[in-house]
């Protein structure tokens, strides 16, 4: 027994040490990184649009929400930015909560997120500067075609959600503290409802998975337009157009960034003429309508 105890305590000790070592760098390891694909570099035949020579090989980290990456928006914008500036943008696409955390810890240079309240907090706490509105997109309340709670003719999101709660129709929430999740929670509180019970399913996953689950469970959910349009599911848009279903995106520079110039270049690109035009056109080909509405302005 004595040997076993010694061995056990040795293991426990090394375990604790190991964990201590791991915990110091937890953030990047869990995030997905994306380095722009080869087509991001300018074609050799074209004359380079004269980026500052020092800016070659420059890299900045953009922490953003999964929606911008999953929808393909960044793939449409970033190659153009790199062509103009020569700056490579490494994208870390995570939930808004984690994206902001990445900014607070100085692990990213620029944030592109959509949770106005959290963004403002980020700036007032002194973590961020140069915050701009970039664009907005829409949220939908979607659900099964037979619409068991009967929300199709309801105009406001608040009333639709109240009716779902009243009928105890299944509703899948992302429950992951993301921008979309925060939007959903704000509508519930607007309707003065505390969603609880077996009808209210908190998936703790991303938008795509949550939509999938809603489809499987014939439930309602709140989704952003881009993710919804990119999936082919047996769910229908039941409520849209209400003002509370608009979803503004902000772009913010991280104050502790070591590359403020490059970060600012990226912000200027997103809020500038070319970036705004690209944002407005994005998705028209595939979905017949733009997924994001450009509305850049300094806050």
């Amino acid at each position: 027994m004595k040997v076993a105890r010694t061995v056990s305590s040795f293991f426990l000790l090394s375990l604790v040490l190991l964990l201590a070592a791991c915990s110091s760098t937890p953030s990047l390891s869990t995030a997905t990184q994306q380095v722009p694909a080869p087509e991001a570099s300018p074609p050799a035949s074209q004359p380079a649009p004269a980026p500052a020579p020092s800016a070659e090989n420059k890299e900045i980290v953009l922490a953003t929400t999964t929606s911008t990456q999953d929808s393909g928006l960044l793939d449409a914008l970033l190659p153009e930015f790199q062509k103009q500036s020569g700056i490579t943008v490494k994208v870390i696409a995570v939930g808004t909560g984690q994206a902001i955390k990445l900014g607070e810890e100085g692990n990213s240079d620029v944030l592109l997120v959509h949770s106005r309240k959290a963004e403002e907090e980020f700036v007032t706490k002194g973590f961020g500067i140069n915050a701009y509105d970039v664009m907005y997109n829409q949220f939908y309340i979607v659900g099964p075609a037979d619409d068991p709670a009967g929300i199709k003719d309801v105009q406001s999101a608040k009333d639709a959600m109240s009716r779902i709660a009243e009928k105890q129709a299944s509703f899948v929430s992302r429950g992951d503290d993301s921008g979309t999740d925060k939007k959903e929670k704000s509508i519930w509180s607007e309707a003065q409802i505390k969603p609880e019970g077996s009808w209210y399913i908190s998936s703790g996953q991303g938008m795509g998975e949550t939509l999938q689950m809603a489809d499987e469970k014939r439930a309602y959910t709140l989704t952003d337009e881009a993710t919804f349009l990119s999936r082919k599911l047996n769910l229908e848009v039941l409520v849209q157009g209400d003002k509370s279903l608009l979803n503004p995106y902000g772009i913010i520079q991280v104050k502790s960034s070591t590359k403020p110039e490059e970060g600012m270049q990226l912000i200027q690109f997103f809020t500038g003429e070319i970036g705004q035009k690209l944002i407005g056109e994005f998705g028209k080909e595939t979905y017949g309508k733009g997924l994001f509405v450009p509305d850049a302005k300094k806050r």
Partner: peptide, 22 residues
């Protein structure tokens, strides 16, 4: 599906906590 109070286990809870910055 990581559903709260239903199918959320330790590993999926860890993923969720990490993704939300906790």
């Amino acid at each position: 599906g990581n559903i709260e109070h239903h199918t959320r286990v330790m590993t999926t809870a860890i993923i969720l906590e990490t993704r939300t910055g906790n």
